[in-house]
Design a protein around this nucleic acid. Sequence first.
RNA 1: GCGCUCGUAGCUCAGCUGGAUAGAGUGUUGGAUUCCGGUUCCAAAGGUCGGAGGUUCGAAUCCUCUCGAGCGCACCA
Length: 561
Amino acid sequence: MQSYLNDQITTVLAGMGGTPPGFELEFQQPGNPDHGDLACNVAMQLARHFRKSPRQIAEDIKAGLEALPLDASKIESVEVAGPGFLNFKISSSHLFDALQVILDAENAYGRTQSGEGKSALVEFVSANPTGPLTVGHGRNAVLGDTIARMLEWTGYDVQREYYFNDAGRQMRVLGESVRARYMAFQDPAIPMKMIGDEGDQVSVPEPFPEDGYLGEYIADIAGELFNSGEKVDLADVDRFKRAAEEKIFAEIGATLERMGINMDSYFNERSLYDSGQIWAIIDRFKALDLAYDKEGAVWLRTTAFGKEQDTVLVKSTGEPTYRLPDIGYHIDKLDRGYSKIVDVFGADHIATFPDVVEGVRALGHDADRIEVVIYQFVTLVRSGAPVKMSTRKATYVTLDELMDEVGEDVTRFFFLMRSPNTHLEFDLDLAKEASDTNPVFYLQYAHARIQSILRKAAEIDMEVVSDADLSLLVHETETGLIKTLMALPEQIERAAELREPHRLANFLREVAVAFTQFYGNCRIIGEPIGIASARLRLATATALVLKNGLAVLGISAPDRM
RNA sequence: GCGCUCGUAGCUCAGCUGGAUAGAGUGUUGGAUUCCGGUUCCAAAGGUCGGAGGUUCGAAUCCUCUCGAGCGCACCA
């Protein structure tokens, strides 16, 4: 529709003397229904160019459009309003066509082709396997997966990747933590010590590292290893580390799967060392005079990228900092040929990723394909008060616990319903409420109610006839609902483009509201067969839009609740 | 001190590429229901869009300054 009008107006403008170079028409959907279905502000924009009043230009364009003339099956009327807006009213026959398109497309309605032939790699979660996923990881996981889903719906070939490092200090401490717990199983009389912050201490075996992991799962892993009967050499920290890694990864995988998330690949940071890629990068930086040796370390000249200070690439111990493998990893991803590389990071990475991107660019790679989605932190709220969370203490809430408490659908929706760059307040009381105050239930309820109507219609043999006369849908809540339903593809497209799933969540609420208005004004069952059939078709289309939209968000659309 | 993000109704937040009278939910107050699912619907009250300048035909939106909040500024990741 928009492209049709775009062509027509461009034709008219050409007859009026043309537009400035690079000029593009803009359309918008007016909030006020009196302003039609589609508005164009071209007259105001070109007032200076034509040296005429915006209203006059708008009138000229209108006259030009009517002389063409416009296709009456698409556009019913054109009006000039306000300071010079051109307001278009979509003709009802076009609405009925659009409704038929939805019904024909069924589960594919909402898919578009803009990403056809393109590929994207979305990297997310990427938590090192030191413990169960927490609520903090949840936002990352759901955001990443939903961005991946949105890209898929716009035609992209998408790969989901999990990046991790099992070789660092964190993991060594993890192994030592397990070993200490293991020793307590071997010798229950082992001396214990208190560890942790003042007033929040935990009793641990004497050999436990000061900054060890305090969660109960550590003892579980140690216990399993002990009970397995395997003879473990206490000096072999790596064995304990491996045991922990396996168990924790299995749990993370299960948690993700429960959320409807399936990773396509896991990328181990260590492979970058094994292949030697890392060291080659240093040589390349040095050749460009972007890296140098100082005080036994290798420094990256980040001042050349506008930073205040240079940063360390390789510590004097010979161990690289995270930047070096990160640069290597991104080069690897670029080399794999994806058209888009999306990273999902928490706000704590906000200052560091530019170093990586600039480093990659400096080495001559196409860093423009890399895109970073940053999200702010999550605060859990219970009974009106924030829930304190700390990974070290036993106070953090795991994703599984959260899902146990509020369910998978609610968990996903709550993480998605706010813009990524605002702090998210996750209200547990609201999330648990199965009522109208909970936005997920409102959407799912609308879907379930439609299914109920369809069931009821089938019971009384009022089958949906596929050739129902849709032109009987003339009530303003009916046409209003159709107009809302029509917007799904562009809404998904827009949300995908901006990597902002919350837009889609908000849109689905609008769909549910539009349906409720229709439902409140137009009965289906009990009406004459013609109108009833047409309305059943409309209800069916609404259910499709809700179901497909929720599917993009990874949320179920139950038939009964 | 420097960088990034945010500041919109009592609360939680939308607000698209600048566009017409700034919107939802929740809460408050009042109302509706023999009816396809009341897990519903309708209405009212509630705003200096943190503040000040600027750009523009037009600014919650863009720019500058300023105040406030969060996060980050390691030879941690």
